[in-house]
Design a protein around this nucleic acid. Structure first.
Lengths: 329, 329
DNA sequence: GTGAAAGCGCTAACAA
DNA sequence: TTGTTAGCGCTTTCAC
């Protein structure tokens, strides 16, 4: 083992470990000469401090735990990216733990965060999280928790989410502004509060305009969305617009429209709530209301820093939505 | 701070720390009674061992570093998932470090791995990695490195890759079998050995069939791929098939074809090398040669374990490819 | 069957 | 300006 430690450096130079330690941190007490010698040697030996020793001493690590159903696609990747970027600026790294929507793995992930004495946890609940308690108990060991996206319905936890209601009503407005008269709106899992909020807000907004027909449907995956499109576009009266609650639904809808050779936007308009990646895959690009995982990440990180610094933190914050025009409406 | 340590438990119970330590690991020396008392108390106090202390003592951690350009889409997510799954079985977690193809961040990520005394590093080079040395020097501090996907052209490093040559020639065969005569083949960054291997194998295979015209082009992102499609399909003699070296290129190509209203497969065939997600987004689904990130992850992990156990390890291994029929050819 | 003590690598209070 | 020392939490050897 060729691992270099402060001790090794101190022995070579004939000084004490603490001198080396201080020299490396550019401590004002140490003479310029000593500093130079220490730094040079450390550099040439490729010294890297042992984080575990540092953490042990500090009683916390420069790691954040990030517990999430999946890192890929449809939203979380951009959240993670932005948390990682922000964290890097402050010297933090990310311990990413995917639960795959499995409650056992989720519980275990919380334990791993505890054992690692992470500086904080970013958590997005699994669809079937049974017990939020273990998250809350992290507070006992001084680990702050920020919930994002899929958050528990609890008063006293810190949550950051996209502005669902706002996004959904913006989408409705965009459809009405284009004079759409017969709208197929496809939403996701109705169990989730996020879905119910979006439906309520969307249909209320549509209802403001008399005479618009609205068909609300649910799809749990792209395939079901494709099926819905096939069903509705074989009808006598075809929808003149399709609204997709998520990227996942959007991909299913587009596949269905392609299969039926339906031209967008000539024969029907398409509008999605999206993070922005999938709409750009198509031609014409899909018009969407953006709920940015990236922005959400930035916000979550800011909240985390406040918690760590023991500043006052707002319990619930949302990031706004905005309409991004493609050519699909 | 309510953090429970062995010492706290030992004080409550009036035994020594070492007894507690041994009791918790079910050491045979300890009496059943003591064990029970210790375990019960530890449980009720929600004791979790401090990993940093353990790592410090062990001189390594139960973390793997995973350095990758991006965690999302196009391949890596499935690799990460499988490494994480395998790792979890053995008690490992993942320190995921995204480089965003930035060489500085990549270097820094290597340092973070060193500082954390990770048990090993899984590395996929950035497109513009200038200096592989820092990876190799991890060996000096006993950190094994497994390169995957984008690997360096070095004899003595351990690499796992998709069977590029095989996949590319399978793709060529599939095109020839359909009697394609004028093929536009779009590859990625020509700097990467992976690209050059694929080109060589692909064009050699095509060359076996006399009279087939092959146009080889490069695209560094989807946009460039879209541009190439627009250029080639405005020509007098349009390609009767497009080959896409990656998912990224595929998405760009499909957007270009949609823009020009070119029917697949009637007017042109499309074939991709892919991980399987994107081809299913389109109608008809794209025929592709699958190189599985998931399988590759399993393989990489197996190699890592061998390295850690200081077993003999094959330097280069590949996972096979297979043709998945869609309706695009 | 249990305890005492050393040591992993680092930092910081205190001494010189 | 530098050194000595104690201690972070844990494991393990050695002693009893």
């Amino acid at each position: 083992m060729n691992v270099v430690t402060l001790k090794k450096i101190s022995e070579v130079l004939g000084v004490s470990v603490s001198t080396v330690s201080r020299a490396l941190k550019d401590h004002p007490d140490i003479s310029a000469l000593t500093k130079r010698k220490v730094m040079e040697l450390a550099h040439s030996l490729e010294y890297e401090p042992n984080i575990n020793a540092i953490n042990l001493r500090n009683k916390h690590s420069m790691l954040f735990g990030l517990i999430v159903p999946t890192i890929s696609r449809y939203f979380y990747d951009s959240f993670i990216l932005s948390v990682e970027e922000e964290g890097r600026k402050q010297g933090y790294s990310l311990l990413i733990l995917q639960t795959g929507e499995n409650a056992d793995i989720e519980q275990n992930s919380i334990r791993i965060c505890r054992q690692n004495r992470v500086a904080g946890v970013f958590a997005c609940l699994s669809a079937n999280t049974v017990d939020v308690e273990p998250y809350l108990r992290l507070k006992d060991v001084n680990i702050p928790v920020i919930f994002f996206d899929k958050v528990p319905e609890l008063e006293d936890s810190i949550k950051v989410t996209a502005a669902d209601a706002q996004a959904a009503s913006m989408a409705a407005d965009a459809l009405l502004a284009k004079g759409k008269q017969c709208i197929l709106a496809i939403f996701g899992n109705n169990q989730l509060s996020i879905t119910r909020r979006r439906i309520a807000s969307f249909s209320n907004q549509i209802a403001l305009q008399k005479g618009v027909e609205l068909f609300i449907e649910h799809a749990h995956n792209p395939l079901e969305a494709t099926g819905l499109v096939e069903r509705y576009f074989k009808k006598e009266q075809k929808p003149d617009a399709v609204f997709c609650m998520s990227d996942e639904i959007l991909t299913g809808v587009m596949k269905g429209l392609q299969a039926l050779h339906i031209n967008v936007p000539q024969e029907t308009g398409v509008l999605a709530l999206s993070n922005g990646f999938f709409p750009k895959l198509y031609y014409p690009e899909i018009t969407y209301v953006e709920t940015s995982g990236y922005e959400l990440g930035k916000l979550a990180f800011a909240r985390m820093l406040q918690l760590i610094r023991e500043e006052e933190v707002e319990k619930e914050t949302t990031v706004g939505a905005c309409l991004v025009e493609g050519g699909s409406l």
